[in-house]
Simulated scan of single mutants.
Amino acid sequence: MIHIKTREEIEIMRESALIVSKTLGMLAKEVKPGVTTLYLDKLAEDFIREQGAIPGFLGLYDFPNTLCMSPNSQVVHGFPTNEPLKEGDIISIDCGALKNGFYGDHAFTFAVGEIDAETKKLLEVTKESLYVGIREFKVGKRVGDVGYAIQNFTEKHGYGVVRELVGHGLGRKMHEDPEMPNYGRRGRGKKFVEGMVVAIEPMTNMGTHKIRQHSDGWTITTLDNKPSAHFEHDVAIVNGKPELLSTFKYINEALGIVTDEEDEFRQ
């Protein structure tokens, strides 16, 4: 069942989403060679609680941490560890926050120091595919339109689109209907209506789209051990069009990046 949000609820959700955005922006300054992901996890938990929110992932489905930390060939759901990040790594950080009864859920893949050109392109294409998909999230379109747009854009660059893991509706629960695959056929699936809120999150592999789940029940890696990237935004349909509730603004400010990539999704 899809839960339509009122304008008031969307504004509450924006607050939760922005807490996650600010958390990722704070972490952007800390992602560097020699830092452990457990250290970053503790920073994030403390920061979220300071904002009057609860870490959205901690304890959810018995997940033991605040952040999903997935380096290099890990796709999603990685555990923070004491292993230091290294120059040339990439690290996908997925974060959630719960405040006033609603969740925010938001992800970004960071470069650790300088990364090679091939991996940098993977990150650029994956992030752009996110916006390609968001453009299709509007009244009258369908789930398959978003998935097709992301898949078509990504596969043109020769990358694999993960099938088993998808975006989702968002609200009082972290995962609501509808599921939002990053692949699909145009004109298929649930039709979008005013007040829907979803998390759109392409997961793109440098090689095969195939993945494997580890024995811990959480960690997902690419089958060929090539790198994977993950970017995610929370998006609402307002006045028939997609409006971002989350933002990469704080990350961009921390990293000195100037971009207008989100401007079209502000009303």
Rank of each mutant, 00 (worst) to 15 (best):
residue 95 C to N: 10
residue 186 R to Y: 02
residue 120 K to N: 13
residue 221 T to E: 07
residue 23 T to L: 03
residue 156 K to T: 09
residue 79 F to M: 07
residue 40 L to V: 01
residue 11 E to D: 03
residue 200 I to G: 07
residue 101 G to P: 04
residue 164 E to V: 12
residue 63 F to N: 05
residue 178 P to F: 04
residue 62 D to C: 10
residue 24 L to M: 01
residue 158 G to T: 11
residue 237 I to Q: 08
residue 207 G to F: 07
residue 232 E to P: 02
residue 93 I to L: 13
residue 53 A to G: 13
residue 184 G to H: 06
residue 160 G to L: 07
residue 44 A to P: 00
residue 243 E to M: 11
residue 156 K to G: 00
residue 102 F to V: 15
residue 130 L to K: 02
residue 181 P to I: 07
residue 227 P to V: 05
residue 95 C to V: 15
residue 20 V to E: 10
residue 126 T to H: 00
residue 160 G to E: 07
residue 229 A to M: 12
residue 71 P to Q: 13
residue 99 K to F: 11
residue 32 K to R: 15
residue 67 L to Q: 03
residue 259 T to C: 08
residue 246 S to G: 06
residue 191 K to H: 04
residue 6 T to H: 09
residue 81 T to N: 06
residue 231 F to I: 06
residue 46 D to K: 09
residue 94 D to T: 13
residue 99 K to H: 11
residue 16 S to F: 12
residue 49 R to M: 14
residue 158 G to L: 10
residue 195 G to P: 04
residue 217 G to S: 01
residue 78 G to P: 03
residue 29 K to V: 12
residue 249 K to V: 04
residue 106 H to M: 08
residue 118 E to G: 10
residue 82 N to W: 14
residue 178 P to Q: 09
residue 113 G to R: 05
residue 79 F to A: 05
residue 141 K to Q: 15
residue 122 L to H: 05
residue 124 E to D: 13
residue 70 S to I: 01
residue 178 P to I: 10
residue 198 V to Y: 05
residue 91 I to F: 05
residue 265 F to M: 13
residue 206 M to C: 00
residue 112 V to H: 10
residue 251 I to Y: 03
residue 84 P to T: 06
residue 157 H to M: 08
residue 27 L to E: 09
residue 181 P to A: 06
residue 190 K to V: 14
residue 14 R to K: 13
residue 8 E to M: 01
residue 252 N to W: 15
residue 176 E to R: 03
residue 94 D to L: 14
residue 252 N to Q: 15
residue 128 E to G: 05
residue 124 E to H: 04
residue 238 V to C: 08
residue 155 E to H: 09
residue 127 K to L: 12
residue 45 E to K: 13
residue 128 E to Y: 04
residue 32 K to S: 15
residue 197 V to H: 03
residue 119 T to H: 06
residue 174 M to F: 09
residue 229 A to C: 10
residue 201 E to Q: 11
